[in-house]
């Protein structure tokens, strides 16, 4: 019953579920943490951003969020492109390009996160 496409699609669903949790956490920290007393400026200030960037838990969460968001988004983009009734060869080329694009963006994003952690 399992096919390559059903596996990719299952990951797409699971990535969506993970995004829901991690993005919810991110939104809560960025927009609702002020409810406890500290203002939004505090959350967005340079010192607050750097403080979060130096926390290992945030680094892990950000890299994980980057990975699942890239996978979820790029799989959805691939799905849209495939609706153009392309030939199998073009579809394969599109898949390779999207994988390369995703990997490049993941490396750049992870590099920025890790660099900030090391600062």
């Amino acid at each position: 019953m399992r096919t390559r496409e059903s596996t990719l699609w299952t990951w797409h669903l699971l990535a969506g579920a993970v995004i829901l949790v991690l993005l919810g956490l991110h939104m809560f920290i960025m927009h609702l943490s002020g409810l406890g007393g500290s203002g939004e400026e505090d959350v967005l200030s340079y010192s607050s951003v750097m403080e979060r960037s130096r926390a290992l838990a945030f680094v892990i969460v950000y890299i994980l969020l980057l990975g699942v968001a890239l996978y979820h988004g790029l799989y959805g983009f691939r799905k849209i492109v495939f609706e153009l009734t392309l030939s199998e060869g073009v579809e394969r080329a599109v898949t390779v390009l999207i994988v390369l694009l995703g990997l490049a963006l993941f490396v750049i994003g992870s590099y920025a996160t890790i660099t900030a952690y090391a600062m």
Partner: peptide, 17 residues
């Protein structure tokens, strides 16, 4: 016969589209 149908029904232009 699920295994014989899966490549068509669950392929890149199957149910997930």
């Amino acid at each position: 016969g699920s295994d014989e149908r899966k490549e068509e029904a669950l392929g890149s232009h199957g149910a997930f589209r």
